[in-house]
Every structure is written in C-alpha cells, then in structure tokens.
Amino acid sequence: MTTTPETRPLIRRLLGSDAAIAQLVVITVLIFVAMTAMNPDKFLRYYNFESISYIMPELGILSIAMMIAMLTGGIDLSVVGVANLAAIVAGVYFRIPAVQEAIGAGGAGVVMHTVAAVLIALLVGLAAGVINGLLIARLRIIPILATLGTGQIFAGLALVLTGGPAIVGFPQTWAWIGTGKILGLATPLWVLIVVALLVAVALTRTTLGVSLMLIGTNPRAAIFAGIRSGRMILYSYMLTGVLSAIAGVLLSGRTNSAKADFGASYLLQAVLIAVLGGTNPAGGKGRVLGVLLALIALMLLSSGLQIMRMSNFLIDAVWGGFLVVVIAINYLRSQK
C-alpha cells in the first residue's frame, strides 16, 4: 500500500489533479489576453482593475453560496432575495430615531451602530437560511421549489418594508464597507478573500464540508453511514443564507442604498459561475478555487465588453451564452 507523497509540488497541491481547474486557468488567461488585445490602451489600466475589485466580491460571495447549496445536489434560488432583505433590514435599523440621533452625534457610537447593523443583516441571512434548510431537510421539499417560494417571500417582505422605493441614508461607515480601502485594497475584496478562505477550509478540513460532499455523492449511503444528513443540509443552507446577507451588505455599501429588486441578474450569474467553476449541480463536487477562477474570468470578460461600449443587456446575453458553451464543453470533455 502507498501513502500520499508529501513531496508534491505546491502548485500541484493547490490546483489538485482537477482537469476542470486547469481548463478554467486556460479560459481566464485567454479572456485576459483577448480583452487586452481588443482594448489595447484601456483594459490594462489600474482604474479598471480597481473597479472590478469593488464590484466582483458581492457576486463572488453569492456564487460561493450557490456552490455550497449545489454540493448536496440542491440549489438556492433565494440568494438575491436574502441579500436585499438583509440590506433593507439594516437600512430600517438606521432609520430608528434613536440610532439616527446616536449617529448624528458621531464618535464611537457610529461604529457601534454600524457593527450592530451588520450583525442584524447577518442574523436576517441566518434566519432565512434556517427557513430554507428546514423546508428542505425536514419537510423534504425539493430545493428548487422551496427556495423559489422563499425567494418570493423574502423579496416580498423586502418590498413590504420599503413600500417600493430604495432605502437611502446609510451612514458613512456603511458606505466604507462597500467603497473603502484597507492596506490599499478594496474593503469588499478583503471580505471576499476572507470568506473564500474560510469556506475553502470548511469544505475540505471539517466534518461539515466532508459530510456535504458525501451526501451530495450518494444521499442514501450517507444515511446508512450514520451521517446526520438533515442537520448537515440545514447547516449548509444557514451558511448560504449568511453568505447571501454578506453579499447584501457589500452591495448596499457600494451603492449606499438598498432596494427590493437590486441585483436581479445576480441569480443567474451566481448559478453560472458555480457551474462554470466545476461544481456539479447534481451534487458531490465543488471547489472554492474553481468558483473564484470562474468569477475572475467572467468579470474580466464583462469589464472588457463594457469598455467596448457593449450594452448591459447584451452582456447578460453573453453570460447566458457562456453558460451554454461551458455546458457543451463539459459534455464533450466527459465523452472522451
């Protein structure tokens, strides 16, 4: 018998022997080269990458959330609804007269109330995740339909809370979360990096992560092996909910507002990035690294197209086309 040699080069260990990852690296490089060639003087500007680094994280975190739901063969169609609801509840918190007064007074109170609002947003995400998880794991509603329904409920509640128009008037500290910098890098990018690292470690190095992969591979065998499937699936949707709420905080921080129908196109994009990143929507397979690579590839693509003055509608169409192409490539690769 043999043991895994510890001497594998670091790069191989990072990338694994995953053909999907190698394919993604190639795609990303190709897009980068193509976009540079098509916009010789505009694409390779510091400003361009800086603006990507502010926009990318919210979608990246939603995509990671989607990947987690897909690990067990599920899907979470409520992520955008949760994100908006979380941001709106935080916005409502800032409207409380006492809070407004404290923020008006300035000083440490501003930071304190901002932290409180973030926590409230995360709690909303957690609660939404618990609802999804209970519907799926306890009542055994198929995830597509359960999250389709709860997505409507969350979006509907967001609408009820705002009555339609966007909530504005977040304090400066809130805007800093979406537009500030730490050590020269965009705050949202830091959030994405931390989330990605934590989720990557959770998926490969903890009981929860390994259990989710196993449940996704064979749910029946998981029961016979004594995995607490129901509880693990519940946890996974709680995680998905919290991640969605984080994305909601970033989105409202960046735009300094919150609205019930923000980021509607993010849902498809999150599914696309998760699938493109090598996640198997039938369950059992998915890596954070793959999702990040897919995210970067698509962000480069759409920023290049934007520089070329392509309309946002057409960029949506390109993304959809990309999904179809990836499905075709994956199929052809599996046929070999």
């Binding site: 899907i75 597509i144 196109s265 849902l267 498809l268 599914v271 696309l272 699938v275 929507p281 039938a282 392509m310 309309s311 509608f313 057409l314 960029i315 949506d316 169409a317 390109v318 993304w319 959809g320 086309g321 999904l323 179809v324 499905i327 075709a328 994956n330 199929y331």
Partner: peptide, 23 residues
C-alpha cells in the same frame, strides 16, 4: 444533446433571449 439539468439550461437561455432582445 448535452444532458444538462433543464433548470440551469433554461435559466441560461432565458437570459440570452432577454439580453439579446433588449440589447
């Protein structure tokens, strides 16, 4: 042809069609 889950395929085609139409 490509044996993909209908939900994901139709999510994709929906956004292609709407994007092209509006664009």
């Amino acid at each position: 042809r490509f044996r993909m889950i209908p939900l994901i395929v139709t999510l994709g085609t929906a956004s292609i069609v709407r994007g092209l139409l509006l664009g």
